[in-house]
Computed example of a mutant assay.
Amino acid sequence: MVRSFAALLMVLGMLGQSASAQEASITEWRKDREEVMDKPVKPAIRKKVTKENNIPRWSFGLNGGYAYRLFRAGMVFSHDEQEYIKDLKSGIAFGGDIAYFPWKHVGLGLRYEMYKGNAKMDSVQSEKVTIQHLSGALIHRSFLKNGKTAILTSLLLGYQPYENRSVVLAQPLTFSGKTMNWGVSVGIEQPISPKFALNLTGTAMMGAIYRLQRKTEFSTETLHLSKDDSVDLSRFSVTLGFRFL
């Protein structure tokens, strides 16, 4: 009897210790869980590396290429005259520009371009034409899917001097004038390094001169031209250039 009672007490003691151990274990588990709930671990914040940080704000470029004037010629009677007009319309264009983009897609700039063309018909007549333009530009920039190649569309407005050094029947003449000009250009720009890019640009310029100054060896006079007799400076150019970003 005594032995049975002692055995019973031993079993109850073991059960009590087991229950206490389980309760402590549960309490520990709950405590740990509460600490985790009370102090949530904040996920590490990753800094976003955006492509906009790599887009240049400033750029400077130089370019050159082919240009073609769009004026209408008068009555042409001979093949020599046709070739003369063709040569007079064709020329070269070269220049440079600088641009600043305060926003990703919109920028402002300055552009300078010089057109040069010349034509000669035997010893009877020759002309050497120089047309310059200095203009401000409002630029829209969009990117292709690769995020690097850019399409640049510009609206141009500025100042355009004109000079024509002619020789007619061995008599030298110089015609000069100034006018406002406006135009549009569309170009594609491809970076080939973080600081260097190539671009191909097509530009259409419009303008006409209604007052010319004519100089000879002996006199200078001002010519006032009608709309039909005005000097049309409209032209189209395609240029290839490089830009520093």
Rank of each mutant, 00 (worst) to 15 (best):
R3T: 08
S4R: 13
A6Q: 13
A6H: 10
A7N: 13
L9M: 14
G13V: 05
G13K: 06
G13N: 11
M14Y: 08
L15E: 10
Q17A: 13
S18F: 04
S20P: 00
Q22E: 12
W29A: 14
D32I: 09
E34K: 12
E34Q: 14
E34A: 13
M37V: 13
K39G: 01
K42H: 13
I45H: 08
I45R: 12
K47P: 05
I55F: 09
P56V: 02
W58P: 03
S59C: 09
F60E: 00
L62Q: 00
Y68L: 14
R69S: 13
M75D: 06
V76D: 02
S78A: 08
D80C: 01
E81R: 04
E83H: 10
Y84S: 03
I85P: 01
K86I: 00
D87G: 03
L88T: 00
L88P: 00
K89I: 02
S90V: 02
G91E: 04
A93Q: 08
F94N: 00
G96Y: 04
D97S: 09
W103D: 00
K104L: 11
H105Q: 10
H105M: 06
L110S: 04
L110N: 00
E113V: 05
M114L: 11
Y115T: 00
N118R: 07
S123V: 01
V124E: 07
Q125E: 09
K128R: 10
V129P: 01
L134P: 04
A137T: 14
H140C: 10
L144H: 04
K145G: 10
N146T: 07
G147S: 10
I151G: 07
I151M: 15
L155D: 02
G158V: 05
P161R: 04
P161C: 03
E163Q: 15
V167P: 01
T174V: 15
T174K: 15
W182P: 03
G183F: 06
S185E: 11
E189C: 12
I192C: 07
S193Q: 08
L198D: 02
T203E: 14
A204W: 14
M205F: 03
G207W: 09
G207Y: 07
A208Q: 14
L212P: 07
L212W: 06
Q213I: 12
R214T: 11
E217Y: 07
E217C: 00
F218M: 07
H224Y: 15
L225K: 06
L225V: 04
S226G: 15
L233K: 04
S234L: 09
T239V: 15
F244G: 04
